[in-house]
Design a binder for these strands. Structure first.
Length: 280
DNA sequence: CAATATACCTGGATGC
DNA sequence: TGCATCCAGGTATATT
């Protein structure tokens, strides 16, 4: 389940095998993803281009071409990127395959097809970048991720703090797993109305968000997957979650059984003692 | 406008 | 064993 750490681990894993490579041929499965795969734009603006570097914004990977075009990739729920020899057998759900100039292929595999592919032609690079970035929320490691800005975003809002943290238009990269984990780390109940949090509590959320995300990145992301970097070692290792998926198990801090609820249609975990219900 | 519900997908787990 | 049902969650869109 790729959230910010998994996307960042993927970015770092792909940097070495892809930088400087030229894309020789592009093939696709014929299936659409969350959006239609822009075959025409891929053929016109990405095929034949050399990959300069890879950036990340929110949960998106941005493959920057030497000619200034950009290939945007979103992993959705089940998307995986891998680099392997052209001769390696294709897998079911390999939806986009980029043949590189060294005989390797970058393959995008996505069983549920919640992922997305977009192309920014070089001549529209600035406008596309601005429009895209304007729709995405604050980066948790960015200098705009401050108590002041979060107080402003949450002002007069009744929405639960967990929902606000997961709102990609407001805050980038935090999905259901890390929202649960960081709220436990900050000792804040997921249902707390966002507008009621103090600057001090937001400061705590910011600090714990960065800590949890950074730890996950260093652990290699939290999803067990078959992504292999060029080095050949597995890209992901399971993170030891403190609350996510631990319904009924003892809280690692106080021993109380953890509680699972459903909030806005999402599995939500918290400790009844460490994260007390906000008073009405 | 704010908040919630639903659609998009497949595969794995569970129930009968 | 087979078949139905539910659940997982990122994001866009619809509804209340």
């Amino acid at each position: 389940m790729p959230e910010l750490p998994e996307v960042e681990v993927t970015r770092r894993g792909l940097l070495e095998p892809l930088s400087g490579r030229t894309i020789c041929r592009i093939t696709w499965s014929g299936h659409r993803l969350r959006t239609e795969i822009p075959r025409q734009l891929l053929a016109e603006h990405i095929a034949g281009q050399q990959i300069r570097t890879i950036d990340r914004r929110a949960k998106y990977l941005l493959l920057r071409m030497a000619g200034n075009a950009t290939l945007l990739i979103h992993l959705g729920m089940t998307g995986k990127l891998g680099v392997m020899a052209e001769a390696t057998a294709r897998h079911k759900h390999d939806h986009l395959v980029l043949l590189l100039d060294n005989g390797m292929e970058l393959r995008f595999n996505d069983s549920r097809r919640f992922g997305a592919i977009a192309v920014w032609p070089a001549e529209h690079a600035l406008a596309c970048e601005r429009e895209f970035s304007g729709k995405e929320g604050l980066e948790p490691f960015g200098d705009q991720f401050t108590p002041k800005n979060l107080l402003r975003l949450a002002r007069n809002r009744q929405v639960a703090v967990k929902s606000l943290l997961m709102n990609a238009r407001l805050i980038a990269g935090i999905g259901n797993i890390y929202a649960n984990e960081l709220l436990f780390a900050a000792r804040i109940h997921p249902l707390t109305p966002a507008g009621r949090l103090s600057a001090r509590q937001w400061q705590r959320i910011i600090a714990e968000a960065r800590q949890v995300l950074q730890t996950a990145i260093e652990a290699g992301g939290s999803t067990i997957a078959d992504f292999l970097g060029a080095s050949g070692h597995p890209g992901y290792f399971q993170l030891q979650f403190k609350v996510y998926g631990r319904k009924g198990l003892p809280c690692l801090e106080c021993g109380r059984p953890l509680i699972k609820t459903s909030q806005a249609g999402r599995a939500t975990y918290h400790c009844p003692l460490c994260q007390p219900t906000p008073r009405p």
